[in-house]
Amino acid sequence: MAQLTTRPTGDDVVAFIDSIADERRRDDARAVLALIEQATKAPAVLWGSSIVGFGTRRYTNTTGSNDWFVVGFSPRKAALTIYGVHDDDGPADDLLEQLGPHTTGKACLYVKRLADVDRHILEQLVQRAWQRGQA
């Protein structure tokens, strides 16, 4: 069975965010870090080299049964990627319609500029995902 390479590292989340070269992406990462911390009341943990995750849950896929974070984000170059708030089953569709400009992928939400979306709606998406992940 393959070992996942994206695992908690113990590295400093704030230092990771402070190292982001693009000022806007860095500011967006700080803001979404605060939003998710507030919504989940969970500590942020760096997973791999570039994903900030909150909480832990077990899931099973083709690599077997693994630990993964419940919700998280990564300040990617093309977009701020938020994990766990969208899935193909549609429970977030009503909120996604109200969010503002974004795209989605499997279990991912992509936002080019945090200022362009409704942060209250984003917080609701995070809270829903957190509650699903705790069940």
Rank of each mutant, 00 (worst) to 15 (best):
L96W: 07
T60Y: 14
K77C: 02
G90E: 09
A79L: 07
E123Q: 06
R25A: 09
Q134W: 12
A129P: 00
V71C: 06
T104A: 11
G64K: 07
R7Y: 12
A107V: 09
T9I: 04
A92P: 00
A78E: 15
Q134K: 14
V126E: 00
A15M: 12
P43N: 03
W47V: 04
R7G: 06
K77S: 08
K112H: 03
G133Y: 13
K112C: 01
A92N: 03
K106F: 09
K112V: 05
A92G: 03
F73M: 04
T81M: 12
L46M: 06
K112F: 02
T81F: 08
Q98A: 12
A78G: 04
E23G: 10
S49F: 09
I121D: 04
W47L: 09
V32M: 11
R76T: 09
L122N: 00
P75M: 15
A115V: 09
A115F: 09
P75K: 14
L114D: 02
D88W: 05
T56D: 11
C108N: 04
R24W: 15
A135P: 15
K106L: 13
D87G: 06
R119P: 08
A21P: 01
L35G: 05
T56N: 14
H102W: 12
V70E: 01
L95G: 06
R7M: 13
V13R: 02
R24L: 15
A44Y: 05
I17W: 11
V13S: 03
I17R: 08
V85C: 06
G48L: 11
A34C: 05
I36G: 02
A42L: 10
E37N: 08
A129E: 00
H86Q: 05
F69T: 06
G105A: 14
R7T: 12
T62D: 15
L122H: 00
R57M: 04
A29E: 00
V85P: 00
D87I: 14
R25K: 13
G72I: 07
P91A: 15
L114A: 04
C108E: 01
W130V: 05
A79D: 05
I51E: 09
T63Q: 08
A92R: 02
A29M: 02
I51C: 14
D67A: 07
N66E: 13
M1H: 15
A34V: 13
A2G: 15
P101H: 13
G72Q: 08
Q124V: 04
V111N: 03
